[in-house]
């Protein structure tokens, strides 16, 4: 069973639909036992860092997520909350990845919205990813490059498009919204 962590931010239905299209049973839940029992956990989200963190803390999900031993995939805000700190609402995050989350500099078009390339791929998540392939991003804050960066994207400046530490994986882009390329990345995670 794949558990998708339910929280107050954004479009979680899309993640659920994508997992189901790949043929995996899944449930959207904030129940701690169900999350602990799952084979894999997806921690999705778009929305605002501070209110998401408050929501997770109220339900003790922040500690639960960090204690998981099965493969975990953070998506978008999920990736940012797995970093050390976010400038969005000056929010202390999990600190799984040694990177800070910053706002894109002013004067440029933000959010970074649309399809972009990836480089410096260093993970089985990207098995089958072609040189010209693109994935869909939508975000106004970015995670710095760090030792756990497994894919880099360039928009205004280079940033972490994906990260991994032990069983924790995360993508800044939306694999569930990135066509067949994204579906393949999601499938690579689900097959880990």
């Amino acid at each position: 069973m794949i558990a998708i962590i339910k929280y107050n931010a954004g479009n979680i239905t899309s993640v659920e639909n994508a997992v189901r299209r790949l043929g995996y049973p899944c449930l959207v839940t904030d129940d701690i036992d169900e999350i602990l029992r799952a084979d894999k956990v997806i921690f999705p989200g778009v929305g605002e860092a501070k209110s998401a963190m408050i929501y997770l803390k109220e339900r003790e999900l922040d500690d639960v997520i960090q204690s998981l031993h099965q493969p975990v995939l953070g998506i978008c805000l999920g990736l940012q909350l797995m970093c050390s700190h976010s400038e969005e609402g000056d929010t202390a995050c999990f600190g799984i990845f040694d990177a800070r989350v910053k706002k894109f500099p002013p004067g440029e078009i933000v959010p970074h919205m649309g399809w972009n390339n990836l480089s410096d791929l260093r993970s089985p998540l990207f098995a089958g990813f072609g040189k010209e392939d693109t994935v869909y991003f939508v975000h106004s804050y970015y995670a710095e490059l760090c030792a756990q960066t497994i894919a880099t994207c360039n928009y205004i400046l280079p940033f972490s498009a994906a990260m991994q530490r032990d069983n924790f994986y995360a993508t800044q882009f939306h694999p569930e919204k990135s066509g067949s390329v994204g579906e393949n990345i999601l499938h690579n995670f689900l097959r880990l």
Binding site: A9, G10, V46, G47, P111, M113, H139, S140
Partner: peptide
Amino acid sequence: ADQFGNQC
């Protein structure tokens, strides 16, 4: 925007 983010 406050509830779902500006990108929505």
